[in-house]
Each structure stands twice: as C-alpha cells, then as structure tokens.
Amino acid sequence: MRDRIKNVATELLINYGYRGLRFKDIAEQLGTTRANIHYHFGTKKNLIEEVIEDYVEGTVAEVKAIWTAENLPYVERVRRMMEFNRERYSRFNPAGKDGRPWSIISRMRLESDMLTKKSKETLRSFSETAEGYVNAALAEAIAKSEISADAPARDIVVQIVAIIDSAGSITSDAGSFDRLEHLYTAYLRVLTHAYGGEKAPHLVAVAE
C-alpha cells in the first residue's frame, strides 16, 4: 500500500504541486481512507519527503545509465538525455504542446519554502550528482579526442547541466518541448563545430 500511495502522490504532486496535494484525492483514487494514508506516512510533509527522495533516486539512476554507458560518444549521451526528458514530458503532455509540469524536481523547487530540509537537500543533490557524471563523460570524450583538448571543459559542463537541471521549467515556460529540444541541439552544434576534435565530422553529423 505504501508504494501505491507514493505512486498516486507522485502524479498528483507533479500535476498540482505541494499545495494541491490532498490525502482525500489519494484516498479516492486508491479506494481507501485518509486515515489509512495517515497510518502509513503520518503527515503530508513525510509523504512528500519520501516521494521526492524516490523520484530523485530513480532519476539519478537514469542519468547515470546515460552518462556512464560504455563506448558511447559524448554527443550521443546528450541526445539520449534529451530523449529521456522528452519521454517524461510526453507522459504528462500527450498532445505534445501543453507544456504542463512533468518533473517533481522542477515543480518542487517552485515551492521549496514548503519543503523539509531533507527534501531541499535531496533536490540539490540531483544537480551535484548530474554534474559529476557529465564532467566524467566529458573528460572521457577529451581523452578519446572526440572533443578538442583545448575545449573549456568547465564551461561545457556548466552549460549542459543547466539545461538538464532546468528542463522542466524550460518546457513549462515555453508551453511545449520545442524550446528544450532547441537548447540541446544548439549546445551540440556549438560544441561540435568549435571543439569537435579529431572526430569532428562524425560528431557534427550526429548532432545535426
């Protein structure tokens, strides 16, 4: 029952945010009582804390799989990151153009004043962890001459992590996935044309 409660809470939290999440709505969807939800989690803060922790943990696992995959060019990692975002976006925006919230990470940052200290730290850890994986992937790409050795590594990492970290907010502001896709694509084009290294022709083809 705990997992079922958290699954429903995840959907409701993404759609309606912290203030819009109600035990009554969860109970109705599960055919149970509010007392039963209180029994498992006690308070709304406790439930949301666990939902955020589970969501970030699952997202980090996906990000890790993308950025640490063996023998995968750096630009392909970026493209797979974009498609991972698109998949999650499409789940909550089946028509493709609504721009509705689809990420707990971005949604909860808008209501961070309502969160526990632990939840805030969990959200912050996502950015730091993602940056670590991207940094390692870029270092590998430079070592393999996919990216030029004179490329400004720190700037390159900061730019893509900013896109990853703000993906939910970008699509909500734009009203569709188009703006996010444009940012990912522009990042790849600038990177490959300016710092393509020995394999620049191949990388540019992938990016375009």
Rank of each mutant, 00 (worst) to 15 (best):
R2F: 14
D3Q: 12
D3A: 05
R4M: 14
I5G: 04
T10F: 08
Y16D: 08
Y18C: 02
R19W: 13
G20A: 02
G20S: 03
L21K: 01
R22E: 04
F23M: 06
D25A: 09
I26P: 00
A27M: 12
E28I: 12
Q29H: 01
T32G: 00
N36L: 02
I37W: 00
Y39Q: 05
Y39H: 13
Y39G: 06
Y39K: 14
F41M: 13
F41D: 05
G42F: 14
G42L: 11
G42I: 12
T43F: 08
K44N: 12
K44E: 10
N46H: 15
E49F: 10
E50M: 11
V51Y: 02
E53V: 09
D54H: 01
V56F: 11
T59L: 15
V60W: 10
V60A: 07
V60K: 12
V60M: 06
V60H: 09
A61N: 15
E62S: 14
K64G: 04
A65E: 03
I66N: 13
W67K: 13
L72H: 10
P73S: 07
P73Q: 06
P73K: 01
P73G: 11
R77I: 15
R77K: 13
R79G: 07
R80A: 09
M82Q: 14
M82G: 11
E83M: 11
N85L: 03
R86V: 02
R86S: 13
R86I: 15
Y89R: 06
F92T: 02
A95S: 12
G96P: 15
G96S: 11
S106F: 13
S106V: 06
R107D: 13
S112L: 10
D113S: 10
T116N: 01
T116C: 02
S119W: 10
R124Q: 04
S125Y: 06
E128I: 11
E128G: 08
T129E: 05
T129G: 02
T129H: 15
G132K: 08
Y133H: 15
N135A: 10
L138M: 14
A139T: 00
I142Y: 06
I142Q: 10
E146W: 15
I147G: 13
D150R: 04
D150L: 12
R154Q: 03
R154M: 01
D155Y: 03
V157K: 00
V158S: 08
V158Q: 12
V161A: 07
I163T: 07
I164N: 15
A167S: 08
G168L: 05
G168N: 05
S169Q: 03
T171I: 01
A174M: 10
E181Q: 15
Y184Q: 09
Y184E: 13
Y184I: 04
Y184P: 14
T185Q: 08
L188D: 12
L191V: 11
A194K: 06
Y195N: 00
E198K: 13
K199P: 15
A200Y: 04
L203C: 10
